[in-house]
């Protein structure tokens, strides 16, 4: 008995296992849906926020030159490029940019975190970090903490809703009243949050360098140092004014 097996497809049809589905990359969806694309979004939006923080910090330090100087600076921000553009135009544009950055940063973070969750459906019984677990613990929970703080911070010092000086006050009044020694706990929350921001940036800034592909063996030390230094400067710059107020150095 000879089976007729056609030359060409000589494989006998017996027991050939069903070919497993091979995942193929999505045809379109593009850069922003890729995990790397989302990381780039995080890096770029992070850079926007860091730039904002630097300016914000420099502004805050004006409090040491007196209430007038601080209020003038706040006013200047709102009247930038006037009369070429109406009142608060530039600041609004900057604020929109900032809000968009925050939203995108959070969107990318949540989406990457969900992706990570899906990538490990069964957790380990025992898991021990070998890279001291810093980033793992600081970044996501740190991010959530910072987001909550920013809400409080806006209600307190921007809108004055929870500020003793109220909304119709000058920025300097809100700042100095807000960190009054009697409200020491506000200062404490602020200190904790700023330190958290510092820790977030220590990894985040370096991580952005890595994501944007700038890190390499020769530069790594310098980039890590840059990230660390930037974080320290920001933490100190943000902590000095409120502490000075709470301890009565600035009145």
């Amino acid at each position: 008995m000879t089976a007729t097996i056609e030359r060409g497809s000589a494989t006998a049809p017996v027991n050939t296992p069903a070919s497993k589905k091979t995942p193929t990359p999505k045809k379109q969806g593009g850069f922003l849906t890729s995990s790397n694309g989302k990381k780039v979004v995080m890096a770029v939006t992070g850079a926007v926020m860091v730039s904002f923080l630097v300016l914000h910090m420099l502004g805050n330090l004006k409090i040491f030159f007196g209430r007038e100087s601080f209020n003038e600076y706040a006013h200047w921000l709102r009247t930038l490029l006037e009369p070429f553009v109406p009142y608060r135009t530039v600041l609004t544009i900057l604020e929109i940019g900032l809000v968009v950055s925050v939203v995108l940063h959070m969107w990318a973070a949540i989406s990457l975190s969900r992706r990570a969750g899906k990538a490990r459906p069964v957790k380990y019984v025992a898991k021990k970090s070998q890279a001291n677990g810093y980033a793992t613990h600081i970044m996501r929970w740190g991010g959530v903490t910072i987001a909550l703080f920013v809400i409080w911070h806006l209600l307190d010092l921007t809108f004055g809703v929870v500020n003793p000086a109220g909304y119709n006050s000058s920025p300097a009044d809100r700042m100095i009243d807000g960190f009054d020694p009697s409200r020491w706990w506000v200062t404490l929350v602020y200190v904790v949050a700023v330190v958290m921001v510092g820790l977030h940036l220590r990894h985040g800034v370096w991580s952005a360098f890595q994501t944007l592909g700038w890190a390499n063996k020769d530069r790594n030390k310098a980039l890590r140092a840059t990230a660390g230094l930037l974080s320290i400067v920001l933490v100190l710059g943000f902590l000095v004014p409120p502490l000075a107020i709470t301890f009565g150095v600035v009145k």
Partner: peptide, 17 residues
């Protein structure tokens, strides 16, 4: 990189683990 995504691996957060 696109294939890595398609396979369902997570994204990198530079934790160094």
């Amino acid at each position: 990189v696109d294939q890595m995504d398609a396979e369902g691996f997570g994204g990198c957060t530079n934790t160094g683990e």
